[in-house]
C-alpha cells in the first residue's frame, strides 16, 4: 500500500511543478483540481479495509476538489471574461526552480523530522511541505486573482496531505467541516472575484493599490 500512496503523492508533487510552470489559467485550474482528486483518493489506500466513513470523506473530497471548486473557478473566469494568461511576478523558470528546489529541500527536511516508524518511508510529509511551498510561490508570484486562489488551494492540498497522518484519529465531522469551509470559501471568493472584475474592469491584483499608507 505504501508504494501506491507514494506513487500518488509523487504525481501530486509533479502536478505542483505543472502548476508552477503553466502559463494558462485553465491548465493551472486543471493541475490544482487533478491534485485534489489524487489526494482525495488517498484515504482509501491508507485505511485498510476502507469503511463507509472513509469512503464518504473520499467521495466528498473528490467531488469537492475535483468538480465543485474547479467549476466555481471556471464560472468565475467565464463571467468575468478574463483572458487566459497567468501574468507572473516571479517568472515561470524561477518559479519552477523554486518549486524543484523546494521539493528537494522538503524531502531532505522530512528525513530529519521525528516521524513514527510507519510514516518514515512515506512521502506524506515531504509531499505536504512541497505543496505548501508551491502554494506560497503561487500566492506571492502571480498577479491574477484566480491564480492566487489556485495557489491558496494548492496550499490547502498540502495541509490536507499532512492531515492524512492523523486519519485514524481525526473524526469524520472535523474532516467534513474543513472540506465544507474550503468549498464555501471558494464560492465566496468567486463572488468577490466577479465584483472586483466589475469594479476595476480587471482581475489584476496589481491594480488593487488604493488602500495604503
Amino acid at each position: 500500500m505504501n508504494e501506491t500512496t507514494n506513487l500518488l503523492i509523487g504525481i501530486a508533487m509533479g502536478l505542483n511543478l505543472l502548476a508552477l510552470g503553466s502559463s494558462r489559467l485553465p491548465t493551472l485550474i486543471l493541475a490544482m483540481s487533478a491534485q485534489g482528486v489524487v489526494l482525495g483518493l488517498m484515504p482509501l489506500l491508507i485505511v485498510e479495509p476502507p469503511d463507509w466513513r472513509v469512503l464518504l470523506v473520499a467521495v466528498a473530497t473528490v467531488a469537492g476538489k475535483g468538480l465543485v471548486i474547479p467549476h466555481l473557478l471556471r464560472r468565475a473566469m467565464r463571467t468575468a471574461h478574463i483572458d487566459r494568461e497567468v501574468e507572473p511576478f516571479i517568472g515561470f523558470v524561477p518559479s519552477l526552480l523554486l518549486g524543484a528546489g523546494g521539493t528537494i529541500a522538503a524531502v531532505a527536511v522530512a528525513r530529519t523530522l521525528p516521524l513514527l516508524p510507519e510514516h518514515s518511508g512515506s512521502l506524506l510529509v515531504p509531499g505536504s511541505l512541497a505543496s505548501v511551498l508551491t502554494g506560497f510561490v503561487l500566492l506571492i508570484g502571480r498577479a491574477k486573482a484566480i491564480s492566487q486562489v489556485c495557489g491558496y488551494l494548492i496550499l490547502e492540498n498540502g495541509i490536507y496531505l499532512f492531515g492524512l497522518l492523523l486519519i485514524h484519529s481525526t473524526p469524520l465531522l472535523v474532516e467534513s467541516g474543513i472540506l465544507l469551509d474550503v468549498t464555501v470559501g471558494v464560492f465566496i471568493i468567486g463572488i468577490i472575484v466577479d465584483r472586483i472584475q466589475r469594479a476595476f474592469d480587471s482581475l489584476d491584483t496589481r491594480k488593487l493599490t488604493a488602500l495604503r499608507e
Binding site: I192, L208, A210
Partner: peptide
Amino acid sequence: RAFEATWKYLLIGGTGIALSLL
C-alpha cells in the same frame, strides 16, 4: 475600495487560518 479591502482580507486571513490548520 471596499472590494479591494475584502480581497486582501480574504487572501491574508485565509492563508493565516490555513496555517493554523497545519
